[in-house]
Design a protein around this nucleic acid. Structure first.
Length: 153
DNA sequence: GCCAACGTTGGC
DNA sequence: GCCAACGTTGGC
């Protein structure tokens, strides 16, 4: 059982987009970074929990909790030239990119902003607050997970 | 819109 | 394998 943080730009896909999906389940597509790909393909497991993080927006923040409800499978949007994240180098017989399905467990009553996270001495080791971090999938320790849950209240 | 920090690409 | 050029991410 692992903990993660998963980033999405709310203009492209926010937690409310997930909330209106049937059964509140959707696929998490568009990962086009090898390190993030390796995390979801090799380390992510069904039952893992993740924070849903809004990036590149007015108030970057953790906005809810999602559960991983599939194992990793090929990201089929990479095969479709009409898709934004089409990648001609991803072969259907040897897929380069993967995705998982996620289920919305709950939206936070109070968002936990990046700004607030930066002020917590207990969270200074998080890659999220370190300089130059661009990874869209980040592992989180149980200690960090619990601390952020505490910050919500 | 700016820009720092990466990651990727491709010539050599 | 090196590295300059280029593209992207994401906070501010």
């Amino acid at each position: 059982m692992n903990y993660w943080l998963m980033k999405s730009e709310p203009d492209a896909y926010s937690i409310d987009h997930l909330a209106v999906q049937k059964k509140q389940i959707d696929h998490w597509d568009g990962i086009r970074n090898y390190q993030a790909r390796n995390f979801i393909r090799d380390d992510m497991m069904m039952g893992d929990l993740a924070f849903f993080y809004h990036s590149s927006c007015e108030i970057p923040a953790i906005v809810g909790i999602i559960e991983i409800v599939s194992s990793a499978y090929p990201d089929y949007t990479a095969f479709d030239p009409a898709e934004k994240y089409y990648d001609p180098k991803s072969d259907i017989n040897n897929p380069r990119w993967f995705m998982v399905d996620v289920f919305l467990k709950r939206k936070f009553r109070h968002h936990v902003s990046l700004k607030a996270i930066r002020t917590e001495t207990e969270l200074q080791d998080m890659r999220l607050v370190q300089k130059g971090n661009r990874l869209s999938i980040l592992p989180i320790t149980k200690r960090e997970w619990n601390h952020i849950l505490m910050m919500e209240n």
